[in-house]
């Protein structure tokens, strides 16, 4: 009982500490760089180091907070509940719901196949299933928080809204194209045992524990990418010729968006690893639309995931799937470049 009380108390203590540090990041960076390290103001090197010392704790704090919150929220969701919610939904409403649930349901890309089979076996339309499978990796809480931290909340909201739109429309189109004949034949013969495992109700203390576990797992896995990404960003701060990338991928060139998407597909990275690169690209003159398209392509259309899907889908289906999602991402890229956001 005392343990349970303690775990309910911890979030408040940590939150107070969090707020205290977050509101003093500027002062802390000044203190470390100018006082402790004794560096002179105004040089490129000092600027780079200051950027790094300021940015690392900021991004880490945001990350820990949001991963914790998302972890706790997700403890109310599961693939089984999502499947139940989607059963018997009409087409468009099903696509919308599947996309939103794709964000909220805990999902690991290594479970894509069993999840796909489980959904299809329950009679959920292929297009609705795909809305889920597209939204789940594409809209990622780590990407959301990093975008918000580096570019502001407007960009982060745009990312979620356009990501959802791509997932909804792509799933809808896939259903309308009647691609069932391009699904591996054995898929429709799968008979699953539905009363597999009773889910036990979690207490609030359990859910908070899930939140802490999620932070440990995710942050433990990605902190190194973030460190490297910010270091690259800090290094680029003033060193790389300013308009080098802008000339290739800047505003004037129509092919920037498709090129960014093509470059993104073979690259496989988690969202955390890609954002710092996006930050550098934008600093060097790549427009937001192009940068977002690149990011979505890397996390939403990855070669490893395509290879996994090959187990259950024929190549025609995969080709159409990639084409539809890539078209969606291209449109998002063009839209933002046009709007000059």
């Amino acid at each position: 009982m005392r343990d349970r009380f303690k775990i309910l108390l911890w979030p408040f203590v940590l939150l107070a500490l969090w707020i205290l540090i977050y509101n003093n990041l500027h002062e802390i960076a000044d203190l470390v760089v100018y006082r402790l390290m004794g560096l002179k103001e105004g040089t490129h090197l000092t600027e780079s180091i200051w950027f790094f010392i300021f940015e690392v704790p900021k991004v880490m704090l945001l990350l820990v907070l949001i991963v914790f919150i998302v972890g706790v929220i997700r403890s109310w969701f599961s693939a089984e509940k999502t499947r139940k919610a989607l059963e018997g939904k009409s087409l468009f409403a099903g696509n919308v719901m599947a996309s939103v649930l794709g964000i909220l349901t805990p999902f690991c890309s290594c479970s894509a196949i069993p999840l796909f089979l489980g959904f299809v076996e329950a009679g959920i339309p292929i297009g609705v299933t795909f809305s889920f499978l597209i939204a789940a990796p594409l809209i990622n809480e780590v990407a959301l928080i990093l975008l918000a931290g580096l570019f502001g909340w407007k960009v982060a909201v745009i990312y979620v809204v356009t990501g959802l739109t791509i997932a909804i429309v792509s799933g809808f189109v896939i259903e309308k194209l009647k691609l069932q004949k391009y699904v591996a034949d054995w898929v429709f013969q799968v008979k699953a045992n539905h009363a597999a495992m009773e889910e036990q109700e979690l207490t609030l203390a359990d859910r908070i524990q899930v939140g802490f576990d999620t932070v440990k797992e995710i942050v433990g896995k990605i902190w190194i990418y973030i460190l490297i990404g910010i270091a690259v960003g800090a290094g680029a701060h003033g060193y790389v010729p300013e308009d080098y990338l802008a000339r290739i991928m800047g505003e004037g060139s129509w092919y920037a968006v498709p090129l960014a998407i093509l470059l993104g597909v073979p690259l496989y990275s988690n969202a955390a690893g890609i954002i710092p690169i996006v930050a550098v690209l934008m600093e060097k003159g790549v427009t937001l639309g192009t940068a977002l398209a690149f990011m979505m392509s890397v996390i939403g259309l990855s070669l490893p995931e395509i290879i996994i899907l090959k187990k259950v889908l024929k190549w025609q289906f995969i080709a159409i799937f990639v084409a539809i999602v890539a078209t969606g991402i291209t449109m998002v890229g063009f839209l933002f470049n046009l709007l000059h956001l």
Binding site: P106, P114, L115, K191
Partner: peptide, 13 residues
């Protein structure tokens, strides 16, 4: 074997 895994009704590995 994914086919056998499905027979246990497991959607998440």
């Amino acid at each position: 074997d994914i086919y056998k895994i499905m027979q246990f009704g497991v959607m998440r590995t």
